[in-house]
Design a protein around this nucleic acid. Structure first.
Lengths: 192, 192
DNA sequence: AGCTTAATGCAAATATTTTGCGTTAAGAAT
DNA sequence: ATTCTTAACGCAAAATATTTGCATTAAGCT
């Protein structure tokens, strides 16, 4: 059994990682994906191109690494007081982000890299958020929603349209999807 | 107003297109996407690399061009005698194809190319098939299904899982999705 | 059959990627 | 705090990919 060598994560390695990621974000905002090259990123980050090739392998692996970092959540979804409104607020923001040009580009970067597990890791971020909303619901004594049902019938249609449709998912569209989980009959009653 | 120059589509142009597409398919079967290069494809097709760069622009545009050609349907879905079984048969085959390694690779090729309209064109192929099934239903005097509902709640979950999940959509899973369109109450009756 | 010109081949130039080897510094051990 | 091992990085050269100018081939119209 081979012993795993020690990977160095401090000092210079960390600085280079951060500089390269910042360079990718900056150049990504200024040009399209097929205009970005490793030598450009290296110059912007202040490293030599072979450093990038050695550490990441190729451009698509680097773009995916940065995309995963950007897609990884940094905070829990907003707490709106009830699980239904939590879900509606979360999904509306999620749809806005994922269907924006930046969101679409990040999803493409993740899917384009030939690295098994990346797309499912990103899907896991979404699943984690839904789990957080359900944990709150339970803490409030509310009935949690079916996470698989939300993924199949709310998240999947939104992502499918963000990637494959020329019409981006609107807030109305998202709320209509969620109406299948929370039918709006009570809303009609309170509207009278 | 500029006059569009005549594009030549016969003879040598057609042969080169066919040879290059065949070369991409052949090399795509033998290696992973990041191992394929334009010079390799050119050698396999018997053309010079600059021909490929001039005609397609870059490797990802070529891969997308070939992916679209492969995703474009060549026949109508099977006619099983009733719209529900037509849909079930179509979706089962669609899920099998799209979640296979080849299907996943083709979707990634289409999404990776920075060419607006390609992903939605491919989604259009699916929509066309659903329209065909509904035209048959109407011809039989049956009630057609809601195409948008099938796209959002059957197609989208399948494609989402094919791209983002480590578990591929199974026939059971697909049929459970379709059960939302055609609830299986009558099946329970005949099972007794 | 002749003509115009789009597409292609060829080769050179430019850019990117890969690789060997020396240098720097991360991090463990003392 | 110092020393030691060695992972990560820089540099430069080599290999490969991509781009471009120009000549040749042949598609398609008259």
């Amino acid at each position: 059994m081979t012993v795993k060598e020690r990977v160095r994560i401090g000092g210079r390695s960390a600085r280079i990682q951060s500089a390269v990621h910042d360079a990718v974000r900056k150049l990504g905002a200024l040009s399209t994906r097929n205009q970005i090259t490793v030598p450009q990123i290296a110059a912007e980050a202040g490293v030599t191109p072979s450093t990038i090739y050695r550490r990441w392998g190729d451009l698509s692996a680097l773009l995916a690494d940065v995309a995963v970092a950007r897609l990884r959540p940094i905070a829990d979804p907003d707490d709106t007081g009830a699980v239904e409104s939590d879900l509606r607020a979360f999904i509306e923001q999620y749809a806005e982000e994922m269907s924006s040009p930046v969101g679409q580009a990040l999803m493409r970067d993740v899917l384009s890299a030939l690295k098994e597990g990346l797309p499912s890791a990103c899907a896991g971020f979404t699943c984690d958020h839904l789990t957080t909303l359900n944990a709150r619901a339970k803490a409030r004594g509310e009935t949690p929603f079916d996470i698989d049902e939300v993924i199949d019938h709310v998240v999947a249609p939104i992502i499918y349209r963000a990637l494959f449709s020329e019409q981006i998912p609107t807030p109305d569209y998202c709320n209509r999807l969620i109406d299948r989980i929370y039918p709006p009959a009570r809303k009609r009653r309170t509207a009278v």
